[in-house]
Structure formats: C-alpha cells, structure tokens
C-alpha cells in the first residue's frame, strides 16, 4: 500500500479543506515568528502575507504558471480560498460593525483621494514609461493605466490596441504595486497617521488596489479594513473609466 499516494489523493480531492489546514499552519508559523523573533513589532498577519507571496513566487518557479502556489496540484484549493469569490465575500463581511457616521465624515476627502489616486498613479506610470524609452501614446497610456491597478492596465490596453508585451508590463506594474502596498503599509502606517477610519478611507482611495490595501490595513489594524476597502473598491472602476478616455486624450495632447 502506498500511503503517500492515498494521503495525497485525499488532499487533492478535498482542495478547499486542505487549504484551510495549510493556511492555518502558515498563519500559526507567522504569528509564532512575530511573537518570538520580533516581539510582536511586526504583526503576524503581515508576516503571513509575506509568506504567502514567497510561496506564490515558489509556485511560479515550479510550474511557470500565473497563479502562484495555486498552480501546484496539491494547493489548487488555495486558489479557491483566496479567489475573487471568497475574497469579496469576506471583504463585505468586514463592514459588519463599521460605523456609518465615520464614513459620512469622510465623503469629500474620500472622493478627492480617489480622483487624485488614479491621476497620480497614472502620471507616475506615464513619466516612467517615457523615461524607459516609450514614446507612443498607446504604450504610455497602457503602462500608466497599469500603474493604477493590474485590471485597469489590460482593460485600457485592450481598448487602445496596445501590444502584448506592453500589456504584460502594465499588468506587472499593477501587481508590483499591490504587493508593495501589502508590505510597506504596516511599516509606513505610523508616520502617515494611518490609525483612524478617515485616513484609512483616504489611503484606500489613494492606493486603490483592493487586495493590497485590504491586506496592508489588516496588518495595521483589522478594524480599519472596511473603511479602506470601501473606497478602494471604487478605484478600479474609476480607473477603467478615466484611463482609456480623458487621460488617454490628455496624454495624446502632450505626447502627440
């Protein structure tokens, strides 16, 4: 009898349940390290997320796929657990207990941060693309859009008929952005006053990447997650709206 195969088959067949066990172990290890090695200075959830990213990198090397660890047969359940459906479900649930008064207080600042967040990211992307030798408006716009989020990039690129490598760069820029947000947020939180619902909403509006802001805020203070996620969820939509239209035309007016 091949016990290894029997056990492996059980894990593969029950992928989602397997992912609960696996993520549970990863989280336990992360909190243990946070507790013993950093004296809780680095939050356990931040370490767990970095572990997740490292596992994703490892999975990418093993399979040459695009879904990180989830491309490995044993860990396909991780793809379901961390996929769009349960992610959105869990994000919505965090709103339970959030206070409507806090959200109302931030109306103008939240809206402003959204608009500014999209436009700033776009400008940074375009300027850097230009510095790297891209001169045609379509490529500049697509890479600028990718700096908004990794969804806005390909949506804009497809609308403008950008080339495939340029679209790939735009996606990569967006992915890097969301990962950087996850890692840097807990480190920067104190110095930018990220400790109340208002600043969390502004932060969500400026960063925009829902996965990045939600994970970053979770590592700072889970109570702030719903406020940041609330504005961030409008960001991608706003980016898809502005990039292929107004921002494309503005870029065209400047670069010809």
């Amino acid at each position: 009898m091949d016990f290894g195969k029997i056990i492996l088959d059980i894990f593969v067949k029950n992928g989602l349940v397997m992912s609960f066990l696996f993520i549970g172990l990863v989280t336990y290890l992360a909190y243990l390290i946070s507790d013993k090695l950093t004296n809780k200075r680095i939050h356990g959830s931040a370490i767990a997320i970095v572990f997740g990213l490292m596992l994703a990198y490892w999975g990418g090397i093993q399979t040459a796929g695009h879904k990180g660890l989830a491309d490995i047969k044993l860990f396909t359940g991780v793809g379901l657990m961390g996929g769009g459906m349960l992610r959105d479900f869990a994000i919505v649930s965090t709103a339970f207990g959030a206070r409507l008064e806090e959200i109302k207080k931030c109306g103008t600042a939240g809206a402003m941060s959204l608009l500014l967040g999209v436009i700033l990211s776009y400008i940074v992307g375009v300027v850097l693309a230009f510095a790297f030798g891209y001169t045609d408006t379509v490529s500049l716009t697509t890479i600028g859009a990718g700096s908004v989020t990794f969804i806005v990039g390909p949506v804009t690129g497809a609308a403008l008929n950008a080339s495939s490598p340029v679209i790939a760069i735009s996606i990569a820029a967006g992915v890097v952005k969301s990962i950087v947000v996850m890692i840097i947020t807990p480190i920067m939180a104190k110095s930018i006053g990220l400790n109340n619902p208002q600043s969390a909403m502004v932060y969500g509006g400026l960063m925009g990447t829902t996965s990045g802001t939600a994970a970053g805020l979770a590592a700072v203070d889970p109570k702030l997650v719903p406020y940041g996620a609330m504005t961030a969820t409008f960001y991608t939509g706003l980016g898809c709206l502005l990039c292929p239209s107004v921002l494309f035309l503005a870029t065209k007016a400047i670069f010809g």
Partner: peptide
C-alpha cells in the same frame, strides 16, 4: 483568505 490570495499572485511575473 488574504494570505491565500497573496499565495496565488503572479509574483514571478
């Protein structure tokens, strides 16, 4: 769930 989400990002790309 966020940890699981992080684990399936295209970090390599």
């Amino acid at each position: 769930i966020v940890v699981a989400m992080a684990a399936q990002q295209d970090v390599l790309a």
